[in-house]
Computed example of a mutant assay.
Amino acid sequence: MSLASDSELAGAAKRGSDRAFEQLARRHSAALRTFLRGVCRNQALADDIAQDALIRAWRRLDQLRDENAFRSWLFGIGWRLASEERRASGRRAKREEDWVETQAQTLAEGLSAEESLALEAAMQTLSPDQRACISLCLAQGWSHGEAAVVLDMPVGTIKSHIKRGRAKLLAALGGEDER
């Protein structure tokens, strides 16, 4: 590892030295990853965010005001990226929840409020793939082939998801398979 200080390396990196930035990245990446793993509680995600933070730092070196503060500046970038990911993850989860609710409502048309709530709860027990197949094929009347194209799955997989998902729904709702 170089004997140069962060300040010296950051100054050289700002002047275009790839080698200086590489040394800074090597010097701080392990600590950055450790910090982000604690924040994210997901090693792979933390490693991805750390890599993104290093790339963003490289691209935005001109925004580094205090070359003595490279480490805190880099960790700040990592923190902001992790925060953005948490917000995005929350939005994805909300969209998934809304989608499941909409699909359950479609399936529940003509059912009582109690039956509709039971169906919605039962849909939550299915895997995302099963929910998607049930929703498209049973609730919306799509063919297995159409669902296979949209979901990018083989037709046999669509049929398996429907069969297993339908069985789980029937079991959860206390129904019997009429086939």
Rank of each mutant, 00 (worst) to 15 (best):
L32E: 06
L32A: 07
L32R: 03
R33P: 02
R33I: 09
F35E: 13
L36F: 04
C40W: 03
N42G: 04
N42E: 15
N42P: 03
Q43C: 04
A44H: 09
L45A: 14
L45K: 13
D47T: 13
D47Y: 08
D47I: 03
D47H: 08
A50H: 05
D52V: 00
A53T: 05
R56V: 09
W58A: 13
R59C: 09
R59N: 15
L61T: 04
Q63V: 06
D66M: 05
E67I: 05
F70K: 05
R71E: 15
R71M: 12
R71K: 15
S72Y: 07
L74K: 04
L74V: 02
L74A: 05
L74Y: 06
F75Q: 06
G76C: 04
I77R: 04
I77K: 06
G78A: 04
G78W: 07
G78Y: 09
W79C: 08
L81T: 11
A82V: 06
S83D: 14
R86W: 12
R87G: 01
R87V: 14
A88Q: 14
A88R: 15
S89Y: 11
G90W: 06
R91M: 08
R92H: 12
R92Y: 07
R92C: 07
R92F: 07
K94S: 14
R95T: 11
E96W: 11
E97S: 11
E97R: 12
E97H: 10
E97A: 12
E101A: 15
E101G: 12
Q103N: 12
T106R: 14
L107F: 05
A108V: 04
G110W: 01
G110T: 10
G110C: 05
G110I: 05
L111R: 14
L111G: 04
L111E: 10
S112I: 11
A113P: 05
E115H: 14
L117C: 06
E120S: 13
A121W: 06
A121D: 12
M123Y: 03
M123P: 02
M123I: 02
Q124D: 11
Q124L: 11
T125M: 04
T125H: 11
S127N: 10
P128T: 03
D129P: 09
A132Y: 01
C133G: 00
I134K: 00
I134L: 01
I134C: 00
C137M: 02
C137A: 03
L138Y: 00
L138M: 02
Q140R: 14
G141R: 00
W142L: 03
W142T: 00
S143H: 00
S143D: 00
H144S: 05
G145A: 10
A147K: 00
A147Q: 01
A148N: 01
V150N: 03
V150Q: 12
D152Q: 14
P154E: 14
